[in-house]
Design a protein around this nucleic acid. Structure first.
Length: 198
DNA sequence: GTTTCGATAGTCT
DNA sequence: GACTATCGAAACA
């Protein structure tokens, strides 16, 4: 079952915010599981005024764990959070510049029964409506950290579908650079992690 | 319906 | 020793 064409590295080698918006509507494929991206967040090196994004892991500087964020674009950055969950990001910006996009929610498309078994939850809209949930549903873990997503078992594809309206809000669950408008979501999707505020 | 809280382990100070 | 880009159950209203 083909799911459109794999996004090339040039897609990722752009400003992080453009990549975050561009990933909405694209299809995340891991093994037999496929799901449409409906919610993302951008984590920058700094904003347009040069203020450092202290919510981003990259603000800690170049360490063993943040190394991939500073590396070439089109690679997966997967980390453990709160000792229990793993979060999936895609590296943006040309090599040497920090920037990544957190995938916060996806809409299951295929491999749904496998997702139900992994998540131990029935309703389809609860399978992957959160960053910790979607990695479990799709079987993504830290073993995928540093993987090239322009080839291999973990890829992102474009089937031409685009969200009708993109919503913007502040990012979820952070305590620094709180008010930056860097969360992007398909405003019409029922698969979001947090219901949009009115 | 909303808010609070515990689980749990890796990373950095 | 503190902190964390979360989740789900429990408590409260």
């Amino acid at each position: 079952m083909r799911k459109g064409r794999i996004l090339p590295r040039s897609f990722y080698s752009r400003p992080t915010i453009e990549v975050a918006r561009g990933l909405l509507g694209k299809i995340l494929v891991h093994g037999d599981a496929a799901a449409r991206i409906v919610e993302t967040e951008a984590y920058l090196a700094q904003d347009a005024e040069g203020r450092i994004d202290f919510a981003a892991h990259a603000s800690r500087g170049l360490t063993a764990s943040t190394r991939v964020i500073f590396g070439p674009p089109g690679y997966a950055y997967v980390y453990l959070i709160y000792g229990m969950y793993e979060c999936l990001n895609f590296v943006a910006e040309p090599a040497g510049l920090a920037g990544c996009v957190l995938i916060r929610a996806v809409e299951p498309l295929s491999g749904i029964e496998t997702m139900r078994e992994r998540r131990r939850v029935e309703p389809i809209h609860k399978l992957a409506n959160g960053p910790g949930k979607l990695t479990i549903a799709l079987g993504i873990s830290r073993s995928n950290n540093g993987q090239d997503v322009t080839r291999g078992t973990l890829t992102v594809r474009d089937d031409g579908v685009k969200p009708q309206a993109i919503g913007v809000s502040s990012r979820i669950g952070i305590r620094k650079s709180v008010d930056w408008p860097l969360r992007f979501f398909d405003a019409g999707s029922p698969f979001l992690s947090v219901a949009p505020k009115r």
